[in-house]
Design a protein around this nucleic acid. Structure first.
Lengths: 341, 341
DNA sequence: TTGAAAGCGATACCAC
DNA sequence: GTGGTATCGCTTTCAA
């Protein structure tokens, strides 16, 4: 079935009607110089009358730039209902508006050998945002391919490889400090910690910060005060009971993500433990759910929207400026006090 | 800056290396007939060795199909954190995987005169999902443009114009019936109703169902038992007090969306009203938040994921089959019993 | 300042 | 079956 056959007004149609070469129309459409103001005016008027719209696909093909931002995320059927990512996407979308680019999403199945670079090639993506890298796989070659071929990209969050790349993350050390200082203020010295996914950048970083700071601040240092989660609700619900069951129970629990904190909350409620009266609870991220649970979750805010927007900003800048040095943008976290602590 | 200069393996490169015409390679890549098995084998092998990847953009240009699904939503900076839409998008994304299409998002600013058809033209979108139509504007011409030019599309939810188009919605009448029957079972006869946005399809439909059914079932019919919200949290928080302040207070509140129900919940808590002991509360949609609030919200589930997936299914079918009659898919709602009622 | 012609990477048609 | 050639709509030299 043929499509667009009648309605498609092309640059040539406009040129014919204006009695000029289509290359001239192209110059006008792209706001370039070397066209007399009078002619420019006339062409603009005609193109409006005819309802001309540039064909982005043709433009992409010739220019090798797609006027899109490609967001690549690891294969996960529930990606779009993980609010953590969505808040970032909100920022990415805002940046897209700013730069007048469309937004494309690609799920990457690394088990099938798909690579970031392949996607950029296949779709001529020139600005890419890479989300939630799985660090059990070595993506350094993939990263190198992107770089070598001049594809601008940013990673959220922090890239743990040694290459210098655009990346955006939150200051985890500062975030943990905010949480622990607040806990200390409230009189807690025995804090249980539910750690994040070990194959991420944030998980180990926050854990390390917790270890260092809780020691420095004179908190109890028992080994079993630290349990291993993976950022998910389920892991919080699973691991919290280990802390609750300790002979000497912690007076507060700090989860490295809100999802885990909410999972822990569920487990605590199941045992009839009252929050924050019996045990205080604090999370990390400030995802949407934190405000909805009861008691509302006290947490460390990651500026997720800003992070998404910044990721696009960095990529666009490195696209426009050959000499732009890839950089890591570290954004400030913030303590959000609600009811759980 | 030139891009892809070295790495780009094209169909011609493969052809040259195989010593055949590039049109032959194209046939092989598209799994078409008229190529001997032996040659096909050889070409496939070479193309793999060379790491050939089809250029989707070039393919789109010539074929006038983009291999994408374009989701168009009304301008809204917070679109991506409204879980109602995201659950649909989850379904759309799953359908994209199924049909091996990439996912594109476009925000439509009708105040700037942007149209659905323009977007499809500009990006050669051949499968479009239109979300959350604003029915204060007449989009019938736009719809007609899409249809005339053979762009396959679906609307979520229900299209209120008279044209026959693909659309997906939930059976609102049945949903309201489920809610009211459940309320009746629990002994309620005096139910306050917070209505949805009047310029949507769901808002008026649910309201009408509520009026008809509550009458039929012998519920109290006072005028002031119905207040006007707009589906948002804020409107629920704003309108609920009007019901709570009635001389003869309702024993249950039915909100036409979960967001409004949760807003109402907030208002009720502020007045020290206990749910469901003092007043029962039931929502509509079953968005993510419904499970997180306390008490967890009893609600009518819309199969949002299925609706998103179905929308793509319908559009793809009407693209592939000229004779496919545009249809309205009405999906079944479901009562989800939690704690609020 | 303007126009003619080449070409981006693919598909499709028509000879052979 | 296979290869040559036109074409999709646009940008970009390069002459005039």
């Amino acid at each position: 079935m043929k499509r667009f056959d009648k309605a498609s007004v092309t640059i040539k149609d406009v040129a014919k009607r204006a009695g000029v070469a289509h290359s001239t129309v192209s110059l006008v459409m792209n706001d370039r110089e070397h066209v007399s103001p009078k002619l420019r005016e006339r062409i603009l008027k005609i193109s409006n009358e005819m309802g001309y719209m540039p064909n982005m696909v043709a433009r992409s093909l010739i220019s090798k730039r797609s006027s899109t931002v490609g967001v690549v995320f690891p294969e996960n059927p529930h990606f779009f209902t993980i609010t953590y990512f969505l808040m970032m996407i909100e920022g990415i979308q805002n940046a897209c508006k700013k730069y007048d680019r469309a937004l494309m999403f690609f799920s990457l199945d690394q088990t099938k050998g798909e690579s970031y670079y392949q996607i950029s090639r296949k779709w001529l993506i020139d600005v890419m945002v890479i989300m939630n890298v799985d660090y059990t796989r070595d993506i350094s070659k993939d990263i190198e391919d992107l770089r070598k071929n001049g594809i601008a990209f940013s990673i959220v969050t922090k890239y743990v490889g040694k290459e210098k790349v655009n990346a955006v993350c939150v200051d985890n050390f500062e975030g943990v400090r905010l949480a622990l200082e607040y806990l200390a203020e409230r009189g807690h010295k025995r804090v249980g910690y539910i750690s994040g996914h070990p194959n991420s950048s944030d998980g180990p970083e926050r854990l390390q910060a917790f270890k260092a700071l809780s020691k420095k601040m004179g908190f109890d240092q028992d080994r079993d005060l630290i349990v291993q989660g993976d950022f998910t609700f389920e892991s919080g619900e699973r691991e919290a009971p280990k802390l609750l069951g300790l002979k000497k129970r912690p007076t507060a629990i700090f989860a490295a993500s809100d999802y885990m904190a909410i999972g822990a909350m569920r487990a605590m409620k199941a045992q009839g433990i009252s929050i924050p009266k019996d045990i205080a609870l604090i999370g990390f991220d400030n995802t949407l759910e934190a405000a909805y649970v009861e008691p509302a979750l006290t947490t460390i805010r990651q500026p997720l929207q800003e992070m998404g927007e910044k990721a696009v900003d960095l990529a666009v800048r490195s696209m426009n400026d050959e000499n732009f040095e890839p950089q890591l943008a570290v954004l400030k976290p913030e303590l959000i006090i609600r009811q759980s602590c």
